[in-house]
Amino acid sequence: MKKLVILLTIVLSFGVVQAQKVYSVDYTNQADVKVFVVDYEAQADLKVFKVKYQNQAGDNDGKWFFTKYANQAKKKIYFVDYEAQADLKIYFVDYQNQAGWRKSSKKMLLY
């Protein structure tokens, strides 16, 4: 029982780590999440702002830092060509305060 509690604590602690450090992979089978960039904000599940520094990356709030290497990222994403292939639809915004979830039902994809 004690081992189960310790294991559960470790597993749950990984879930609260910032998920907004992302790496764009080359192949769909390498990705944790498949992403499609929509043309209009109203079509998006998540509005994303690309930050310049990794310490600015948000805590699952749409502020993404694209890492140089896959092992630095919390989530690996693949940009798909068609909306129907995507797990998550995003829209890139121009200002940090515009970032955030439009559909919180998809929020668990980045935890």
Rank of each mutant, 00 (worst) to 15 (best):
A70M: 14
D32A: 07
K103I: 00
V80I: 08
M108W: 13
K34V: 05
Y82R: 11
D32S: 05
T9Q: 12
R102E: 10
V38D: 03
V35T: 03
G58R: 00
V33P: 07
D61K: 07
G62Y: 03
Q30G: 05
Q54I: 10
V5T: 12
E41T: 14
Q98E: 14
Y23P: 04
D94V: 05
Q30I: 03
L7I: 11
E83V: 12
V80W: 09
A44H: 02
L8V: 15
Q56G: 02
I6C: 10
K21G: 03
A31C: 06
D59C: 02
K50V: 13
V22L: 14
N60Y: 00
N97D: 15
K107E: 13
F66S: 02
W101Y: 07
D26Y: 11
K68I: 04
Y23C: 09
V22H: 05
G15M: 14
W64E: 06
Q43E: 14
D32K: 02
D87L: 08
V22R: 08
Q30K: 11
K47I: 08
Y23Q: 08
K3S: 14
M1H: 15
Q20H: 06
D45T: 01
K2I: 15
L12D: 02
V35W: 03
V17Q: 12
D94E: 15
A19L: 08
I10D: 02
I6P: 00
L110D: 03
E41F: 03
D87T: 06
Y91C: 03
A19T: 13
A86V: 00
A42E: 11
Y91M: 00
V17A: 13
L12Y: 12
V16Y: 10
N29R: 09
T67G: 03
D61V: 05
Y23R: 08
A84M: 08
N29I: 10
V93G: 05
K107W: 05
A70L: 13
T67K: 02
M1A: 14
Q20D: 15
A70H: 15
V16E: 07
S13D: 00
A73F: 06
A44N: 00
G15C: 14
F36D: 00
E83K: 14
K107I: 09
K75M: 13
Y23A: 06
V37G: 08
V35Q: 01
A86G: 01
Y23S: 06
A70T: 12
